[in-house]
């Protein structure tokens, strides 16, 4: 079953007076439970594709379906609602809310979903335990290392059981050991909780971990490799 269906996606940016065609008619389907890397050099269009799949950006043409819902004619609030319930995000620079503690950052998504406080707190602590941040519940982002912040970001992304987690260069700001630890953790969640992960990356380690590798170059899919276990 496909969790993501993209058909003939085109996207052009205006950079000053120059038009940059970031995506040139890309079509891509992603199956539920996948662990996929969109790889390519800088400017290849992988982050743009990830943003379009996440409803953060609009395609100029083509159709996008996530979790059975078409993005066509969705307004900002509807897209926000879809992201809230179906999509988790992990960003390169962690992007935690600086005034909230680790537990509160994780809780925040559940708060938006209207989950009662007691349940929110319990689930936030459980997921933080799962990502190895026991006893770090009350630390603010500034009091955590880069790796720990990214673990909180992963916990935030998966705590509400989204259909898919989109991770944009999640290991780019981490050293290789921390990055590997993070990937191991996500892999484990993918296997145990059946969470679909889609990475945008040019980190070889992420590509090695991915079970499917989609190589993008100049806004086109260059190669689509499914690895055999």
């Amino acid at each position: 079953m496909n969790i993501v269906e993209c058909t003939e996606i085109n996207k052009t940016y205006q950079q000053g007076k120059v038009e940059v065609q970031a995506l040139r008619g890309i079509s891509l389907n992603i199956k539920k439970g996948g662990f996929i890397a969109l790889a390519g050099p800088s400017g290849s269009g992988k982050t743009t594709l990830l943003n379009i799949i996440g409803g953060l950006d609009h395609a100029d043409s083509g159709t996008v379906n996530v979790d059975g819902q078409s993005f066509d004619k969705m307004n900002q609030s509807q897209l926000a609602n879809l992201r809230l319930h179906s999509i988790g995000f992990v960003f390169q620079s962690y992007n935690l809310i600086p005034v909230l503690s680790a537990a509160e950052n994780v809780e925040f998504v559940m708060l938006l979903q209207g989950i009662p406080a007691a349940e929110r707190q319990g689930r936030a602590r459980t997921i933080l335990d799962d990502v190895g941040l026991k006893d770090k519940y009350d630390r603010r982002p500034a009091e955590l290392s880069g790796g720990q912040q990214q673990r909180v970001a992963v916990a935030r992304a998966i705590v509400s059981n989204p259909s898919i987690v989109l991770a944009d260069e999640p290991t780019a700001n981490l050293d290789s050991k921390t990055g590997q630890g993070l990937l191991e953790m996500m892999k484990k969640m993918n296997v145990e909780k059946k969470v679909t992960f889609v990475f945008s990356t040019h980190d070889q380690m992420v590509m090695d971990y991915a079970r499917r590798l989609v190589l993008i170059h100049d806004g086109l899919i260059d190669n689509d490799l499914v690895k055999k276990n």
């Binding site: 609030s77 609602n81 992201r83 809230l84 995000f89 809310i97 998504v109 938006l112």
Partner: peptide, 14 residues
């Protein structure tokens, strides 16, 4: 940037 992140994780503009 922070507001962008809040929107990304599902916070409505309202």
């Amino acid at each position: 940037k922070e507001f962008g992140v809040l929107m990304a994780i599902g916070t409505t503009p309202g």
